[in-house]
Write a protein that binds this DNA or RNA. Sequence first.
DNA 1: AGAGGTGGTG
DNA 2: CATGCACCACCTCT
Length: 608
Amino acid sequence: MEFKFDPENPKYEYITERSHYDKVIKELENVNVVSVDTETTGFDPHTCSLLLFQISTPDKSYIIDTRALDLKTLPEIKDILEDQKKIKLLQNAKFDYKFIKKHTGIEMYNIYDTMLAEGVLTAGLSGKMSSLKTLTKDYLGLDMDKNIRKSFIGLKDINFSEEQLKYAAIDTFVLFPIFDAQIPKLRVRGVVDTAKTEFAVTKVIGEMELRGVYIDRGKWSNIIKNLKIRRDELTQEFYDEISGLYQYNSLDLFGNTAPPININSNVQLLELFNKRVGLNLPSTGDPILETVNHPIVKTLREYRKYEKLISAFGESLLDKINPVTKRIHPQFNQMGAATGRFSCNNPNLQQIPRNQPEAPFRECFNPAEGYKFVISDYSSMEMRILADLSGDEKFITAIKNGYDLHSYTAALMFGLEYTEDFKKKHPDLRQAAKAINFGLMYGMGPGRLAAQINVTPELGKEYMEKYFSSYPSVRDFLKKVASEAVRNGYSATPGGRKRWYKMPDKSDPDYKKLIGSIERQAKNHPIQGTNADAMKFALVSLYERLKREKIDAYILLSVHDEIVTECNADFAEEFKDILSEEMVKAAEVFVKKVPIASDPFVGDVWEH
DNA sequence: AGAGGTGGTG
DNA sequence: CATGCACCACCTCT
């Protein structure tokens, strides 16, 4: 392949003086596409610093040493980065966005992110985001030495070697040919709009991560402390109950009897239950243990509740509090799920347990001083999307009328009259309908349904059929999505987001099973994916409105169908309606036949 | 290091 | 034919 740069000898200018900068900046002002990268002393913009800022054309890289030249004093750079027309090519733009914003105040606009573009092009095919090394190898056939990157970590006061500067230059050069190769692919596959959405979202997520969220350390520790007390009691209780079943109780270094087994080892628990207690369990998961009436099992189940909370949400979360901001800054991966949803880690705030009397974890998340939480979530969003996508008349009417959907479904299925107090009169029927309503969105079959609502397989099948005769268009829709996914190798949301499937070989012994799995994923994808599309639109339009109207509010978290913000306390009540309005407007772009509802509230704790 | 089991969220 | 989607953290075991 021909490149405009020489991979062995890239052309660059290393800029440490203002006069030099003044000379070269003019060359950038008339360029439509630049690539941008930074070299930093680490990964956290709050505790690490910027070393180099590279801005490049296809054949020349300008490497500004930000220790010698402060970008804050260079308005031309700000103009270029914030220019709405100039395209900025980056790999994993969110990372650079955060460092640039934090250390210079510049808010980069019009980003093209090669990593996100590739994510859009391969959603569903690979769980991981592509590194620049991988993209460079795949698109350009070049091998990149990424070891040099490590040489920047922790450095403050060094003179860069030629090797380091070449590395910094190459990183920006490869983005041009990758960009050129991705663009036609995005067009051919019809995912240009999805890519644009992702590019717009990335700066919003960058801002969100920079802001972080406050957590009350003392309150959190106190919850953990109390959970540990109860867990330790249960551990003791468990060992007391099983000690008689073990012949030899070994002693530890201090002569105390040591526990005969590790309570956390499922292998050892299974041995205990099946060889010593005389049960016959296939696994030690709660769905199995639930069915066993035995004191040891009861103690274990109780122990596990506490152990789970302590191990997964204990002190490890407090370790993530940033020393500078005193807040938690989780990472949001905007292409984290194959469906288009975000995933979240370090820590995963999307899985903090709902408040319970003994463990009110979400009460530990509080707004900054002088601010209020303003939180809103879409109500029954996925049901509304299913109603809209299928176009089912009765389903849509029920939502428009504000009926309790599970009750209404049950009434239809069992030929009863829908009334306001249906839930009270027929809780079991409503429960069955609810199980179907949710299960269907996951491609559930009659067998699983029967097991869940505790009826015979025959009855499960019958219920399923009753459901589909009540909402015939839902059946047609799900069938169509599944068969098209198998035929085309992808499924799509109305917004155009696609999820690809790796089609199994016909000779594969698991062929049918794999096809079945694709069909279920395909049934779910337009529903979950449309929710994700709406959420992403909402985040972008909300962010732009905050900017435009100079509202003193910040987006903190996004949890699938919920947005958590903090707003100046004086404006919180007004902002409540703005948040809700933006969420509804965003969803209405994709959902046309069914009304959208978003339920906002103002508060001092994260609870909904 | 990575897989498998378990369990938290939407 | 087999039979519910999407994630991440922590644990044990190999």
